[in-house]
């Protein structure tokens, strides 16, 4: 992790990626507008790292993760997995890459089929992609259950017999069943109790070391992202505002949005809280169907000037791998 980013191998490369959902209206369902969920994002993910993708609700972070895995079709732009362009690829070809890129979903209550046993949920990818059968498959399921901290005897039970944290472990076992290289974890701990969150995050870190995984960790929990991520990208209204090494971003945030966002997160320590300066942002996130012109943050930005509502700021490198989209950050 101490290597300079430039010398490291890129596993996923995203360029000018856009995803617009059409808004249809009227008798003939004509398109009257679009929700610009992801509106031109560019970044690389290096092999073995955890890239944190943070943002508030509606910032497009989940859509971004889904489009990277081709679960939603991109409107524009490129997604490369180990140099191969995914957006133009046939469905069959994408399917052949599925074993190598997987997803962990937010809600462990909705992402597991209630009518399937835990064993068959975890075995499904093995059957689908590897045609594994019988004892070999059973053995692999047992192995996976043990790896995620459950017991082989749990294979015959149904999801409702498990707590939220245990269900998330089942989701993780399914995601790693085929030895993937890259996992998109979409808010994997958001639905869990506080004392269970640490269990799941520790598990994610353990299996990352063991299986040499690369994560895109999507979350709104900035404290947890500081803990787990190597680099962090901050999204706002479909665009990335800042991307930097985790310590750079948390210690010296350059974008006014990152600064405000970090200052809004409470720290569980009354001594520190008593002296903390808070940037309170005015108003709400504008609608992604009608984003403001220029910099998307200009309507709430404490340092906005005229130029901010006229020109979209350039995506620039401030040095040391800290990228920022702001006219005034330095």
């Amino acid at each position: 992790m101490s290597e300079t980013p430039e010398t490291r191998e890129v596993i996923v490369s995203v360029k000018d990626l856009k995803k617009h959902f059409p808004i249809m209206k009227g008798l003939f369902r004509r398109q009257v507008g679009a929700v610009r969920a992801v509106d031109g994002v560019t970044f690389d993910i290096f092999r073995g790292e955890t890239l944190g993708l943070v943002g508030e609700s509606g910032s497009g972070k989940s859509t971004c993760g889904r489009v990277i895995l081709q679960l939603d079709e991109a409107t524009e732009g490129e997604v490369k997995f180990e140099g191969e362009e995914l957006t133009e690829m046939s469905d069959g070809k994408v399917r052949s890459l599925r074993p190598r890129m997987q997803m962990i979903f937010q809600n462990p209550h909705a992402s597991l089929n209630p009518r399937m046993t835990v064993g068959s949920i975890i075995a499904e990818p093995l059957t689908e992609h590897r045609s594994e059968k019988g004892a070999a498959r059973q053995q692999r399921v047992d192995e996976l259950l043990t790896l995620v901290g459950l017991q082989p005897k749990h294979a015959n039970r149904y999801p409702h017999e498990f707590s939220g944290g245990q269900r998330q472990r089942i989701g993780i076992a399914r995601a790693i069943a085929l030895n993937p290289d890259f996992i998109v974890a979409d808010e994997p701990i958001a639905a869990l109790d506080v004392s269970i969150q640490a269990q799941v995050v520790n598990l994610l870190e353990e299996i990352q070391d063991e299986l040499d995984l690369t994560y895109l960790f999507i979350s709104h929990d900035l404290s947890m992202v500081r803990h787990i991520a190597d680099r962090v990208a901050v999204m706002y209204l479909g665009r990335i505002m800042e991307l930097a090494h985790v310590d750079q971003l948390y210690d010296t945030p350059k974008h006014p949005y990152t600064q405000a966002l970090l200052s809004a997160v409470p720290v569980p320590d009354p001594v520190i809280e008593a002296t903390r300066e808070r940037v309170i942002l005015e108003g709400d996130i504008p609608s992604p169907s009608n984003p403001p012109p220029g910099c998307p943050f200009n309507t709430r930005c404490p340092i906005a000037q005229d130029i901010c509502s006229e020109q979209v700021p350039e995506w620039r490198d401030l040095g040391g791998g800290q990228w920022v989209a702001c006219h005034f950050a330095e």
């Binding site: 944290g165 004392s195 269970i196 969150q197 640490a198 520790n202 787990i228 569980p268």
Partner: peptide, 24 residues
């Protein structure tokens, strides 16, 4: 004690998260 140890903090890096084993 465990709950405070299991909380990641914005102002600390390289922090180990305490596992409270089991469930409520």
């Amino acid at each position: 004690h465990g709950l405070l140890g299991s909380l990641p903090r914005l102002d600390q890096k390289g922090q180990e998260l305490v596992n409270i084993k089991g469930q409520p």
